[in-house]
């Protein structure tokens, strides 16, 4: 339904997105995940025909978004970051207007508006002025205007931003219900949202797609599952090299959590399929270091996300994560050479 190939966009000398390639199958919900400024909105704007791409092609329902802009615009529903609303109109009047300019025929218009109102939970107040609506309701009207013309492709830019928890659940359910009949792309920087609503995730960072897969596969493939959090007391300078050389240990990192005086917390990341709990504990105890906490952690999408989007800085830190002559607190406080 959506095919994006080698898409790039630069504003002057700054590159917003670079060589972005992905595809979305009909009926799928693709979550577009990335930190703020990663290029999510730019990609969506290109898809909707609002911005032209600098290079590459994007096709929606078989039409190239720039060459066949009008055909694409008819087949796409778009909710920008801030919902585009006319405050002096009523909800119903506004949806009628949008249905009209999106080319819904006069006979179907009333019905389509009614469906959109019902789907977005607005049917109890169709005559309310948009000016008087709360943020949550405005967001719903924004979604309603994106689906009012029953487009095959729906693009939602941060659809749950500014909503209260109950409304967030409602909106997520609404989006899930859209799948099947519609192909949905939604962007977010809220991680649980993706694992809850999306069938596939594309993680974008600094204008590049760094991973595309289902949320579950991303977690197992990229993080390899497990790791341990440990809290130690005493002099750990001799212990840490030992730990990082243990079979099955992938890396060792200082944790940023606050700990009592004289203690330090560490993340031990392990290879997939290896459980090192026993040897880890034995090594620590054998070195005469106090072990105050040892907790097994499973990778969350959050970890995947952080690992992928902060790849450069973690590489720089990992050389530092086994400090031989410094207290862990000190190494955290001082900027490392790699970062500057």
């Amino acid at each position: 339904m959506i095919e994006v190939e080698h898409l790039s966009k630069s504003y002057g000398s700054t590159t917003a997105i670079e060589d972005v390639t992905f595809a979305v199958e009909p009926g799928e919900i693709l979550g577009f995940l990335g930190p703020n400024g990663a290029g999510k909105t730019t990609t969506m704007r290109i898809l909707t025909g609002y911005l032209p791409a600098s290079a590459g092609t994007a096709k929606v329902a078989g039409f190239e978004v720039h060459e066949n802009s009008m055909a694409v615009r008819q087949r796409i529903g778009y909710l920008p970051e801030s919902p585009p609303l006319y405050p002096e109109m009523t909800i119903e009047g506004f949806l009628h207007f949008v249905a009209r300019i999106k080319g819904v025929s006069a006979g179907d218009r009333a019905e389509r508006v009614q469906i959109a109102l019902e789907r977005c939970g607005l049917s109890d107040r169709p005559k309310t002025m948009i000016r008087k609506l709360s943020k949550g309701y405005r967001q719903r009207v924004g979604i309603a205007q994106a689906i009012v013309h029953d487009p095959p492709v729906i693009v939602l830019d941060e659809p749950t931003v500014g909503l209260d928890p109950r409304q967030i659940i409602e909106v997520r359910n609404l989006i899930k219900n859209l799948a099947g009949d519609h192909t949905v792309i939604l962007s977010t920087h809220i991680l649980p949202e993706v694992s809850m609503t999306c069938s596939r995730v594309a993680i974008i960072n600094k204008g590049k797609i760094v991973a595309t897969n289902s949320p579950d596969a991303l977690m197992t493939d990229l993080m390899g599952g497990d790791g341990y959090n440990i809290e130690l007391e005493g002099d750990v300078t001799d212990l840490l090299p030992l730990l990082s050389k243990l079979p099955g240990v992938k890396s060792l990192e200082a944790a940023t959590a606050a700990v009592p005086e004289g203690r330090s917390q560490w993340h031990v990341f392990t290879q997939p399929g290896v459980d090192i709990g026993r040897t880890l504990a034995a090594t620590i105890v054998g070195a005469g270091v106090g072990l105050y906490e040892m907790r097994r952690v499973r990778a969350s999408l959050e970890d995947v996300f952080l690992q992928l989007t902060t790849a450069e800085s973690t590489e720089a830190e990992s050389t530092d994560s086994v400090p031989l002559d410094a207290e862990p607190e000190a190494s955290d406080a001082e900027p490392t050479a790699g970062e500057t």
């Binding site: 909707t48 025909g49 609002y50 009008m70 615009r73 008819q74 796409i76 778009y78 920008p80 970051e81 801030s82 919902p83 585009p84 609303l85 006319y86 405050p87 949008v98 300019i101 999106k102 080319g103 205007q145």
Partner: peptide, 14 residues
């Protein structure tokens, strides 16, 4: 200012 230009510009209207 209201962002509605984005709505008009992504609608099938010249």
């Amino acid at each position: 200012k209201r962002g509605t230009l984005e709505l008009l510009a992504t609608s099938p209207v010249t």
